[in-house]
Design a protein around this nucleic acid. Sequence first.
DNA 1: CGTTGTATAGCAAAAACATGCTATGTTTTC
DNA 2: GAAAACATAGCATGTTTTTGCTATACAACG
Lengths: 208, 208
Amino acid sequence: MRDLTHAVVLDDHRLFADSFALLLQKIGQFDVVLSFSAVDEFFSFLQSFGDQELYVFLDYYLPDTNGLALFADIKRQCRIVKIIFITSAFTPAVIRNISHYKPDGILSKSAEIPLFVKCIRDVRSGRKFVDPQFEPFLAQRDERGTTLTPREIELLKYFSQGHSIAETAAKTFLSPHTVVAHRRKMMAKANCQTIAQMLTYARDNELI
Amino acid sequence: MRDLTHAVVLDDHRLFADSFALLLQKIGQFDVVLSFSAVDEFFSFLQSFGDQELYVFLDYYLPDTNGLALFADIKRQCRIVKIIFITSAFTPAVIRNISHYKPDGILSKSAEIPLFVKCIRDVRSGRKFVDPQFEPFLAQRDERGTTLTPREIELLKYFSQGHSIAETAAKTFLSPHTVVAHRRKMMAKANCQTIAQMLTYARDNELI
DNA sequence: CGTTGTATAGCAAAAACATGCTATGTTTTC
DNA sequence: GAAAACATAGCATGTTTTTGCTATACAACG
């Protein structure tokens, strides 16, 4: 008789955790699935579970912390654990952060069932799985992500607070022309046509 | 023989939608549960479904729109539908926005199973259900928090994506004048002078 | 020592936006 | 059934932003 395969979900959204546990059981074909939405309860379980085969589906966003911070702790508790990040986030910054830790899987909550199945199959056979929609962000890693100069970021902050060019110029004791020059340069770098796009870009890249 | 009870989930996170459908079936005891993550597919179904008893579990956050903007459309399609908002958001503004529409239920994705069960029981017997954790925010309703209308929020999303007034008008088949009118109204409500402030406001209130 | 990147600054024309005002039909609410 | 809120649309005027140019000074890199 083969061993039972265990999976656990850690997600602060209990309804998701419990629902996803059902999916893991039914489609993912894990024999035992537990769901947690409190970090400490999860670790209590992990401690008692010991060093057996285990698949952890870990939410990136958690209250007061995030999945990354737990990653090393989990690995310490249980060395042969396989960790799959599940995330609702799409920003390059988050994906880069996650991939940096080289987890066994990165899966979007937006994934379709077939992809979910592939993820589980891959991870179970020891392959790393990355949601294809995230791959572009991984590729970006080497080709340098756009870098704004300190001055540009400083001015960007003023813009994000709703200050106009003239106001920003007054606050920084620059000529409005200079402010315009910085602004257009950063917009060109980030490939943005409007300040709204620029702010979205800034937020996604955690610049502001 | 009693009629089959139907439920549908609309959530852009497919894994959640599919998982939650399992939960609705198993714990919620709905006979037929369908899950959608695309708005148009959902409406196709709704049209074919006609005016029968139906329970819709509607995510607040949806790409390019949100549950509020769909609320009226759904009610139009199927008058006896019961709509339960499910949301991962906790900010007063979001709860106020939702409760403003008087849906049949407001349920947090963080809810525990017993609460989930109570929600379904309440809604099925015609009572309105509100997740207790949200009730404090409802009390705040009279001291007016800014509430944007669905149309305003819809247009706000276009702006946040960097679309100009003209572009937004084209995409929504509105007159640019109308777009301007909505825009100025929402800016006045939120007490914003620039679109940048408006976007910051929108982010802080998790409207986009 | 030249090239590159950064910070600074300017002009002018075109495009977009803001604002004060009005107005009408529909929907919701009390 | 009246009042309030919402969605729609328009005009006129002034302000702001965008964009296509140019230009100087300084610092770092190789």
